[in-house]
Measured scan of single mutants.
Amino acid sequence: LVRYRTISKIPQITLNFVDLKGDPFLASPTSDREIIAPKIKERTHNVTEKVTQVLSLGADVLPEYKLQAPRIHRWTILHYSPFKAVWDWLILLLVIYTAVFTPYSAAFLLKETEEGPPATECGYACQPLAVVDLIVDIMFIVDILINFRTTYVNANEEVVSHPGRIAVHYFKGWFLIDMVAAIPFDLLIFGSGSEELIGLLKTARLLRLVRVARKLDRYSEYGAAVLFLLMCTFALIAHWLACIWYAIGNMEQPHMDSRIGWLHNLGDQIGKPYNSSGLGGPSIKDKYVTALYFTFSSLTSVGFGNVSPNTNSEKIFSICVMLIGSLMYASIFGNVSAIIQRLYSGTARYHTQMLRVREFIRFHQIPNPLRQRLEEYFQHAWSYTNGIDMNAVLKGFPECLQADICLHLNRSLLQHCKPFRGATKGCLRALAMKFKTTHAPPGDTLVHAGDLLTALYFISRGSIEILRGDVVVAILGKNDIFGEPLNLYARPGKSNGDVRALTYCDLHKIHR
């Protein structure tokens, strides 16, 4: 019993810090008490220290592992850092350059016999395009090294910054494609005289377009951006097909006994025919423009016929181009109408809503002055909100995010209106959640004399007048207030005048 009563005193000691020596009952000389009392004092002292730490809000209350900052290894790049964003855009520009100039170089340097010394005699450094290609190869190699040090988000939505895990993730992902696209074939085969082989191998750079397509997928929600990307894709495919079309004609031209190829026909049409040795002929500019003209006309199913396939190889390629053109029509131009419709969806919704308003007016036989006010209010409210119901949009977000959005939407009023000066951010967040926005066209009466005042109004834009009878008592403008002081009276009061809008007004109100 003594032991039980001794232990039962522990909660009292913990909360009230009572010393055991003052209790005459606990001072009985028993061996059990002498053993338990020192333990009680020690526990009391420890609990006292913990309570003191909690009340003082000291940093040592938290466990040590929670006080440590997340460790980022040296030379690790955050995937959302500004440097990584700028670097990704730079790589994107280099990939676009590669997609345009690599097929052009591979096709127009394929057994090209233009006048001038061969590239091997001039030297590697004197070729501007080769120098640019070398810079692109170096940048792609540097990009691989950067990807080995860039964080990523795993399946659990955690940012991984450990170098080993980053390397394994990159090896399992895009490393092989990036490595093949970054191989400097110019340096590996330079001086061997195989410019045709170098041009063909350099087309491996186009593998990076797969990554670019995935990154550009984030802009699919913007109709104008999608339309622009589709047109660029169409032009890029036409450019690639033009390079292939020229390569076919250029390879067949020296081996044909009869002059029936499209390059021969082009030379005869523009007065620059090929001679018996295969030299001469149109310039590279004429060849490229004509090839691009043929691919565009074939892809769009126009086909004027002034550039036509004559050999079997050219006919087979033309059939493939027609098939590609039909697929592009289905996948690209078939979506253009939907994209344009999405661009004008706001206008369509406006006309639909206006039609419903006019049908309501016609069905209920609203008189002319009231009908005009109804239409003007709808037009003004639509121009202010673009038909978007803010309350319906915010309803799907958590309250903390709703408060931040409301604070942002009402920031101008909260910053410049005098009653809100000096208020804490928590108070402003709470008030912003209570605001209701209303609009009024010129001549609209917001409050009639004798109406119950259940709200306090803040003028965000425009001006109003307060009338008693036919006498203008006051004219209020931006950041002015009218209405009933909230919670100042037990019952809502009545208006002693009319409140009429002089201009288009936007008002925020808080109800009782």
Rank of each mutant, 00 (worst) to 15 (best):
F228D: 01
M433W: 04
L110W: 15
K434T: 03
G173E: 01
L134F: 06
T438P: 01
N410G: 03
D137K: 11
I260Y: 07
N310Q: 04
S301C: 05
F185R: 04
T203Q: 01
V307M: 01
E114K: 14
L134V: 07
L263C: 01
S337G: 14
K285Q: 13
I332A: 03
E195A: 15
Y384K: 15
E195R: 12
S194C: 14
A182Y: 01
T233W: 09
R259G: 15
A235L: 09
T76C: 04
P367L: 01
M251G: 01
G193T: 13
F363H: 11
I340K: 03
H79V: 01
P282N: 01
T311C: 01
H162D: 12
E114A: 15
A119S: 13
L343N: 04
N265Q: 14
L409R: 03
P103E: 01
H169T: 05
K418L: 09
T385F: 04
P254S: 15
A204K: 01
V132M: 14
Y80L: 06
I332Y: 06
A181I: 01
K272H: 01
L446M: 06
G173V: 01
N335E: 07
Q415P: 04
A348D: 03
T113S: 07
L409T: 08
A238T: 04
A247M: 10
L236M: 09
M322K: 02
G281A: 01
H364S: 03
C400S: 04
S313D: 05
N250T: 11
F363S: 03
T424W: 01
S258A: 09
A106L: 07
L355G: 13
R71F: 14
R421P: 03
F140R: 01
T203A: 11
A99V: 01
C232K: 01
G191W: 04
I198V: 11
R165L: 07
T437D: 07
P367V: 03
E376M: 06
W89G: 04
H448N: 14
P128R: 03
F228A: 09
K395D: 07
G303K: 01
V210I: 13
A238S: 01
S383H: 01
N265P: 01
H439Y: 01
T120G: 10
G223M: 03
V142L: 10
G116W: 04
V159Y: 03
T385S: 03
A449I: 08
E157F: 14
A69D: 14
T438H: 08
L263N: 01
T437A: 11
D217P: 04
V168Q: 10
Y97I: 01
F228E: 01
V212T: 06
G325K: 01
I166A: 03
A182T: 05
L200M: 11
H79E: 05
K287D: 01
